[in-house]
Computed example of a mutant assay.
Amino acid sequence: MKDKPYRFVIQDTANRKYLLHIDSGIDHPYEDTNTTEEATKWSTLEHVAYVLWWYVDLHREYQIVNLDTNEVFMKDKQRGIPHVMSVSK
């Protein structure tokens, strides 16, 4: 079976940095990174949407970026957890 590519990253919409997961045991176990190469990558939109809803800081705005297509997803607050919607141009 072929491994799925890891194509999704989470990006802070304010500072444009990407999140790197650090296994620290704290409430927001992420550090900002400057590049997608340094960032944590997820293989499915479903998984990264779950992470965005439950494990990423709720006081800032983040988006999910598909590295293959450059499609951008944001929380779909009207549909509820853990839905996201495409906002790509």
Rank of each mutant, 00 (worst) to 15 (best):
Met1Gly: 12
Met1Glu: 01
Met1Lys: 03
Lys2Tyr: 07
Asp3Ala: 08
Lys4Ile: 02
Lys4Leu: 08
Pro5Tyr: 10
Pro5Ile: 14
Val9Cys: 15
Val9Thr: 14
Val9Pro: 03
Gln11Asp: 03
Gln11Trp: 05
Thr13Tyr: 11
Thr13Pro: 07
Ala14Pro: 04
Ala14Trp: 08
Ala14Val: 11
Asn15His: 10
Arg16Cys: 10
Arg16Gln: 10
Arg16His: 15
Lys17Met: 08
Tyr18Cys: 13
Leu19Glu: 13
His21Ala: 15
His21Val: 14
Ile22Asn: 08
Ile22Gly: 09
Asp23Val: 09
Asp23Ser: 12
Asp23Gly: 15
Ser24Thr: 15
Ile26Trp: 08
Ile26Tyr: 06
Asp27Lys: 12
Asp27Cys: 06
His28Lys: 09
Pro29Phe: 12
Tyr30Gly: 07
Glu31Phe: 05
Glu31Cys: 13
Glu31Trp: 05
Asp32Tyr: 15
Asp32Met: 13
Thr33Cys: 12
Asn34His: 04
Thr36Ile: 05
Thr36Ala: 10
Glu37Asn: 10
Glu37Leu: 11
Ala39Thr: 08
Ala39Val: 09
Thr40Pro: 04
Lys41Thr: 14
Lys41Tyr: 05
Trp42Gly: 07
Trp42Lys: 11
Trp42Leu: 11
Leu45Ala: 14
Leu45Trp: 07
Glu46Asp: 15
His47Thr: 13
His47Leu: 08
Ala49Ser: 14
Ala49Trp: 01
Ala49Val: 06
Tyr50Ile: 09
Val51Ala: 13
Val51Gln: 09
Val51Tyr: 01
Leu52Phe: 09
Leu52Asn: 04
Leu52Val: 04
Trp53Asp: 04
Trp54Cys: 09
Tyr55Leu: 05
Val56Phe: 03
Leu58Phe: 05
Arg60Trp: 05
Arg60Val: 02
Glu61Ser: 13
Glu61Leu: 07
Tyr62Met: 07
Tyr62Asp: 01
Tyr62Ile: 03
Gln63Lys: 15
Gln63Ser: 05
Gln63Ile: 02
Ile64Phe: 02
Val65Thr: 03
Val65Trp: 00
Val65Ile: 06
Asn66Trp: 00
Asn66Glu: 02
Asn66Tyr: 01
Leu67Lys: 05
Leu67Tyr: 04
Asp68Val: 02
Asn70Phe: 02
Asn70Gly: 01
Asn70Trp: 00
Glu71Leu: 05
Val72His: 01
Phe73Pro: 00
Lys75Ser: 02
Ile81Ala: 05
Pro82Asp: 02
Val84Ile: 07
Val84Thr: 15
Val87Ile: 08
Val87Pro: 01
Val87Arg: 04
Val87Phe: 02
Val87Glu: 04
Val87Leu: 00
Val87Gln: 03
Lys89Asp: 15
Lys89Leu: 06
